[in-house]
């Protein structure tokens, strides 16, 4: 079962148990434009050279553990990687047929959705979408249920198991605490030599993106990924090839994820509605967490991942 499907079943199960299907009041999906002053980043993959400076900058800014390999070691590109508890952003390399270069790179991190599925799926309200556009979370509230991990359409949140008693979600927070709050761009944007990352107001970035495409149509595929997807995201992507060639999911649609269950999520005590389904889910997940890690950690149990026996 796919993770998203699993969540749907989880939620539907909870909803059915409580309401018997009375949750049909879908919102007008995709109508929320985010906060008017919300910031974002336009990722122009035509400029990215795969130098991994953004990964190094993120590692230092967020005080992440020492990486397994140096940040100038390009052998990491041999395997596609995903974000996890040790790396809040990763750059992957893609073999692209139509591109004159043959190879393209794409940085990925939390996209800071306008209507974050992680936020709506969190039943203790650990998540906040800030006025500046960042999706942040409060680790003290997080109970480690990993709902957000399943809900996220971009497979972003990772989990830290450094303490078996206090598992904690880990994901990009747009450098909110140290930079965004003070009007500064995140560390990755600051360091990017190619200015593949453009920081600005989301509404301006959308214009910028379309303008780049209009001015140099030969350089770009005419789509701004994240303008509409899942109700819009703070981080946007433009590219010389179609999004699917850079492993961007084109099947997500423009409706916010689980917008149809949002209303009752907001009004019903979550404890009653989804816990029964959740408990079975947590158990199922706890036995399946190896899915979310690189192959080379899959032989370890969660308690061993910090290297302590």
């Amino acid at each position: 079962m796919k993770r998203r499907d699993f969540l749907k079943v989880c939620l539907a199960g909870g909803a059915a148990a409580t309401f018997g299907g009375a949750c049909g009041t879908a919102r007008a999906g995709g109508s929320f434009e985010g906060y008017p002053d919300g910031m974002g980043v336009l990722v122009d993959t035509t400029r990215c050279i795969g130098c991994r400076s953004c990964e190094a900058a993120c590692n230092k800014e967020q005080k992440m553990p020492e990486p397994k390999k140096p940040f100038d070691d390009m052998s990491v590109f041999n395997q596609p990687r995903r974000t996890d508890e040790t790396a809040l952003t990763v750059v992957n390399r893609y073999e692209v047929k139509e591109s004159s270069r043959g190879q393209m790179y794409r940085k990925q991190q939390c996209n800071h959705c306008n209507e974050p599925a992680c936020l709506t799926s969190c039943f203790v309200n650990a998540y906040t979408k800030t006025r500046e556009g960042a999706v942040i979370y409060n680790g003290d509230i997080c109970v480690g249920c990993r709902n957000c991990m399943i809900a996220c359409p971009f497979n972003i949140p990772g989990y830290s198991y450094s303490s078996a008693f206090n598992p904690l979600v880990k994901k990009c927070i747009f450098c909110y605490d140290t930079r965004l709050k003070y009007g500064k761009p995140p560390a990755c944007v600051d360091i990017c030599p190619q200015e593949a990352l453009t920081f600005g107001h989301r509404k301006d970035l959308i214009k910028t993106a379309h303008e780049r495409i209009r001015e140099t149509p030969d350089r770009y595929y005419d789509h701004v990924y994240g303008e509409k997807e899942v109700g819009g995201t703070g981080w946007l992507y433009i590219s010389s090839v179609s999004p699917d060639q850079l492993a961007m999911d084109t099947s997500l649609g423009n409706e916010p994820i689980i917008s149809n269950v949002k209303e009752f999520l907001g009004t019903v005590p979550m404890v009653l509605s989804i816990w029964p389904a959740l408990f079975s889910g947590i158990h199922l997940l706890a036995t399946r967490n190896k899915d979310h890690h690189d192959n080379d950690t899959s032989t370890h149990t969660p308690g061993q991942e910090d290297g302590t026996p």
Binding site: C51, S53, A56, A57, N59, K60, E66, P67, K68, K69, P70, F71, D72, D73, P193, G307, P309
Partner: peptide, 28 residues
Amino acid sequence: CTGCHPRSAAGDAFYNTGEYAPKPKAGK
């Protein structure tokens, strides 16, 4: 990167490379 500008010691630390490259962990 280093084709144009040599990396400084601070740069090596920042990129966890050279002298600052991660040591293979014993026991793993």
